[in-house]
């Protein structure tokens, strides 16, 4: 807890006792608890990996961060502001790689990568150069003018990563960005990603299902409980990786210690 308090002072991202309930219109407005008193803080320039079992509220946490949904209770602060209430303040400061690629079907790969910078008002020539650069870095040279339906799932995912990176945001939110890629491409992109985030002093949170990926990329790992609440917080840098892996597994499977052992 003392560690958490230490970062709060100048935190880039801060969740304070956040609760999110969804009204299920399909079930007579029954309410569903997706996030349960979630508190954590992220220091500027930090890379956080979020792990948690399916349906535990990771994407919901992202939507709260991106200001797309409003917390039922508690406060969310990103760069000292409220992402839902001060929505437009975040122009150019925040970008999201969504869990599914979410490409505009009527735009080519290039057009999709340009979208974010175009909305920021960059001139055509400049944004073309930026977008082409990103497409090349992500191994999509030769596919600039393909429409999304003609790209593979992994290629589409890379286009959506390029779209977020092209904005050069202060805060980068990635929801399982590398899950749809083959081992080699994934590995290369993870390295790119680390380099990009470190070099440019960006704050980033990414969600993953893979403990290895979390250990490789995260400076700190947050394990979510279902409904979303911190089950474990572990600093990776300088720690004993095997011990951390064991603790993460146990935190992810609180009721099945044996399963956790087997998985390890």
């Amino acid at each position: 807890m003392s560690e958490l308090n230490a970062v709060v002072a100048d935190a880039a991202i801060e969740f304070h006792s956040v609760v999110k309930r969804f009204l299920r219109h399909d079930r007579r407005d029954e309410s569903f608890l997706a996030v349960d008193r979630l508190s954590f803080a992220v220091a500027p320039g930090e890379m956080i990996a979020v792990l948690g079992r399916t349906g535990c509220g990771k994407s919901t946490m992202f939507n709260l961060l991106a200001g797309l949904i409003e917390p039922t209770e508690g406060t969310v602060r990103v760069l000292g502001h409220d992402p839902f209430r001060e929505f437009n303040w975040y122009r150019g400061k925040l970008a999201v790689v969504f869990q599914n690629d979410r490409l505009l079907p009527w735009r080519t790969a290039l057009g999709n990568v340009e979208l974010g910078i175009e909305l920021l008002g960059k001139e055509e020539e400049e944004r073309r150069a930026i977008a082409l650069g990103w497409l090349e870095r992500l191994g999509l040279k030769g596919h600039e003018h393909d429409y999304p339906h003609a790209l593979s799932g992994g290629m589409r995912q890379r286009v959506s990563i390029a779209r977020a990176f092209a904005v050069n945001p202060e805060i980068l939110l990635c929801d399982e960005p590398f899950s749809a890629l083959d081992e080699l491409t994934g590995q290369r992109l993870r390295e790119e990603y680390t380099q990009l985030v470190r070099e440019n002093g960006k704050t980033s949170i990414f969600v993953t299902h893979s403990i290895n990926e979390a250990l490789q990329l995260g400076e700190r790992i947050l394990v979510f409980h279902r409904p979303a609440r911190i089950a474990l917080e572990a600093r990776v840098a300088g720690g004993d990786r095997e011990a951390i892996r064991q603790r993460v597994l146990e935190a992810m499977n609180p009721n099945e210690p044996r399963l956790a052992e087997e998985a390890a």
Partner: peptide, 9 residues
């Protein structure tokens, strides 16, 4: 797609 576009403000 609506939320994706909105995320760029």
């Amino acid at each position: 797609l609506f939320e994706m576009t909105l995320s760029f403000r």
